[in-house]
Computed example of a mutant assay.
Amino acid sequence: MKVAVLYGGVSGEREVSLSTGKGIIQALKNKGHEVIGIDFDPSKIEQLIHLKVDLVFIGLHGRFGEDGRIQGLLDMLDIPYVGSGVLSSALAMDKAKSKQIFATNDIPTALSQSYQVNRYENRSVIAAEVKASFTTPFVVKPNQEGSTLGLTIVKEESQIDKAIEIAAASDTVILVEEYVGGREVTVPVVGKQGEETALPVIEIIPKSDYYDFDSKYKPGGSEHIVPAKVSDELTEQLQNYAVQAHQLLGCSVYSRVDFIINENNIPIILEVNTLPGMTPTSLFPDSAQVVGLSYDDLVEQFVTLSLPNKS
């Protein structure tokens, strides 16, 4: 088939997306597809308007890639694409909205509160509300951002103002949530809508205090243990929650669901990634490899699941 791969983009995750795109392009070529690589820029929409391909593989991360906007454009152009549609992408990107959906359906979440920055006279009012509602440590982060960009773990009240400033630089809505310490795990989900299965659970052991940007993307920044050394019962619970979260948001083809296992051995859901990192050494391919699925075969499976019609 003729497949266009969109990668790069203009979000804070551009560098990661460049690597994801490179991996996907090579895998598709290895599988015999004709591939067009497009370093996507929203100001150059004409790159897509006259595109003549059988399928688009979205290798973008963050804004204008993972938030439903590029999906909406491709829908209007009647170009099929790999992955989740407009609504599920937007919901997964909106941490506050997705957490409400998870909590309503009995998937444990961290206590949180969102604040629309421009509704407040000044940020000191937000800081006062945060101080009244949360006790340290807690997390301040942009509501719609990936790769822990703009995130601060507030350990002392003197950090609140700066944490709000950092988060608000990335988004008009900030999310404050209780800090949940514990083991960081993630669960890849793949399959036809309604028939998804979870791949092996991955435990992430960051070299820094938490799984930040450097831990995710710098060589040696973290260790991945696949499958995670957790009980069979907890593995099943994590996989069930992951598939349930994927389905509740209406995701398609694949996603990766992040959790913290707290001190009471309860999985607390963090978020659903509708376009997780797909470099050959990323978490998703690491897990797939354990069940005998090579990187190239995994990419080809995503393509197959996306045809002939998106759901």
Rank of each mutant, 00 (worst) to 15 (best):
I160R: 04
D67R: 04
D286P: 05
L28F: 06
F138C: 03
V117L: 06
G250I: 00
A96T: 14
F259R: 05
S19V: 15
V226Q: 09
N262G: 06
D296K: 14
L55N: 10
K207N: 12
S170K: 14
Q289V: 04
I101K: 09
Q26I: 05
G194H: 06
Q100P: 06
L270D: 01
K52G: 07
M76P: 00
G12Q: 15
G250R: 00
I70D: 02
R119E: 14
Q26F: 04
G37D: 05
S252Y: 11
P280V: 10
A163P: 03
I160C: 03
S84G: 07
Q47R: 10
V290P: 14
E195N: 14
I38C: 04
V303P: 01
K141F: 07
M278I: 04
N273F: 04
P108A: 02
V189F: 02
I174A: 05
K44Q: 15
L305T: 00
S282E: 04
G72K: 09
G191P: 13
G32N: 13
D39G: 13
L111F: 15
E233V: 11
S43L: 12
F134R: 04
Q71M: 12
S88G: 08
V190K: 00
G8V: 03
V86K: 14
I164Y: 01
H50A: 15
V86L: 14
Y81L: 07
I260C: 08
R14P: 06
V117I: 12
T109V: 15
I49P: 08
N264C: 04
E184I: 07
V189L: 09
Q144L: 08
P142G: 03
P285V: 07
A228W: 05
S306K: 05
N273A: 03
G150S: 11
D39K: 12
D297H: 08
E178C: 00
V5C: 10
L175F: 07
S311G: 09
A242G: 06
F40Y: 15
T109E: 13
V5A: 10
D296F: 13
L175S: 10
H246D: 03
K155I: 01
F102K: 09
L298P: 00
M1Q: 13
K218S: 15
Y295Q: 05
N122H: 14
S311K: 07
A132V: 02
Q239M: 13
L248R: 03
Y211F: 15
G32V: 12
E271Q: 10
M93A: 01
L6D: 00
I36H: 10
Y120N: 05
